[in-house]
Amino acid sequence: MSLAVHAGRKDEPVALSERLTGSETATASTQGVKPAAGRWGWLLGLIVPVGLALGWEFAVAFGFGNGRLLPPPSRVLGTLWQLAKSGDLTVHVLATVWRIALGFLFGVIAGTTLGALTGYSTLARRLLDPMLQALRSIPSIAWVPVFILWFGIFETSKVILIAVGVFFPIYLALSGAILSVDRKLVEVGRIFRLSGPELVWRVLLPATLPSYILALRAGLGLGWMFVVAAEFMGASEGLGFLLVDGQMTGQAQMILASILAFAVLGKLTDWLLHIATEPLLRWQDGFRPAG
């Protein structure tokens, strides 16, 4: 380390990497540490549900329960298998997934647009946020009669109900996250003369991405909740319909088979969303628990 300062050395090649001090060592080598559980760690999540299912299966098999109101897993899986063999399961799953997909899409578009607008513009926030916050507190089921009245009993009302469910977590998270973006990064944007839309695109949205992606997952989860309410609105197909059908005909195994399908599909779509968005957050420097 030289304590002398040499001005005007334009002719000398700069090879500062060779002059790095000990404190200037990059921390790249500390990245990429795999948790101890490794690639099969996800199997841990199966232990509790599979253990409970097996416990109940044996309890019914050894006469500790009759399994009438809570059928054993073998009967529930058998019902699912029968539905799958007849092709009914595919029809019901596709109907539900299609509604979720459309509702999620519209909910995301509306939530992102209004969230970004109210987060970025004080005027828009003062104008829209109080009304939206009031609407947020309305229970999902309260919308059902209104949407049937306005949009009929068919698909439109169902998709809109799901979109409403998806909308609020995304709107709330994005609007709030924009307001908490580090002012210092916004200043960098100003120094580099970013226009309003450029500031949103290049600074505000990337900075809010972690919260936004979490909100997408929460929105998707609510979408799955709202689809049940939507399919209670006189549907003739869909997993919600299967649920109602099981209730009407007193088939507990049908109800549980529908609930199981909801759980598996909900988890699967959440996992897909997580996998799709994970590369967008590689830059994060957050807490990563060991083990």
């Binding site: 700069v14 500062l16 990497s17 001090t21 404190s23 200037e24 921390t27």
Partner: peptide, 20 residues
């Protein structure tokens, strides 16, 4: 090249020391 960071061009900021 002038700031001696060519080798770290594709690193994330979190992977650099304060001086870098």
């Amino acid at each position: 090249k002038r700031v001696g960071l060519t080798k770290f061009a594709d690193n994330w900021p979190r992977e650099l020391s304060g001086g870098m």
